[in-house]
Computed example of a mutant assay.
Amino acid sequence: MSLLRGGPHYGTELLAAPAETGALATSQGTAYPLLARLRREELVTTDWNESPNGPPRRFCTLTPQGRAALEDFSSVWAEFTDAVDRVLALDRPHLRGKQ
């Protein structure tokens, strides 16, 4: 959903961005069912738009409910990653001072 924060994107674009990180690559078999679930939960809307380079593309856009859910998740994620970092630091003496 954070990939949609800046505006509408179509499925292939949504797959490409995480793949560029090298660690978050996913497949259409994962992404499209997730997008369908987000659409059913009214967190995203989709619209078909003509493409100058081929068939029409289905663009996804965050709804206001989707933006709120993303903000909630972002704060929970930050707390989660901080907690994991603290636990990992317990096993790594050289990281203990970075809590």
Rank of each mutant, 00 (worst) to 15 (best):
S2P: 05
L3E: 11
R5S: 07
G6R: 11
P8T: 04
P8H: 03
P8S: 12
P8L: 03
Y10S: 04
G11K: 01
T12H: 15
T12C: 10
T12M: 14
L15K: 10
A16T: 10
A19P: 02
A19D: 08
A19H: 06
E20H: 09
G22I: 12
L24W: 07
L24H: 13
A25K: 06
A25M: 11
T26R: 14
T26L: 14
Q28D: 14
G29N: 13
G29M: 03
T30N: 10
T30E: 15
T30S: 04
T30I: 14
A31M: 15
Y32P: 00
P33S: 03
L38Q: 01
R39F: 01
R40C: 04
R40Q: 09
R40S: 13
R40H: 09
E42S: 05
L43F: 01
T45I: 08
T45P: 00
D47H: 09
W48V: 12
W48I: 06
E50G: 05
E50S: 12
E50P: 06
P52Q: 09
N53W: 15
N53L: 15
N53H: 14
G54V: 03
P56L: 11
P56E: 09
R57D: 01
R57F: 10
R57I: 01
C60G: 07
L62N: 01
T63Q: 03
T63P: 00
T63L: 02
R67I: 00
R67V: 05
A68V: 06
A69N: 07
A69C: 07
A69K: 11
L70G: 07
E71Y: 08
E71C: 03
D72E: 14
D72G: 03
F73Y: 14
F73K: 10
S74A: 13
S75M: 10
V76H: 06
V76W: 04
W77M: 11
T81D: 02
D82N: 12
A83R: 08
R86T: 02
R86A: 10
R86C: 04
V87F: 08
L88F: 08
A89S: 07
A89W: 06
L90G: 02
D91Q: 13
R92Q: 12
H94Q: 11
L95C: 08
L95D: 07
L95Y: 07
R96Q: 14
R96P: 05
K98P: 07
K98C: 11
Q99T: 04
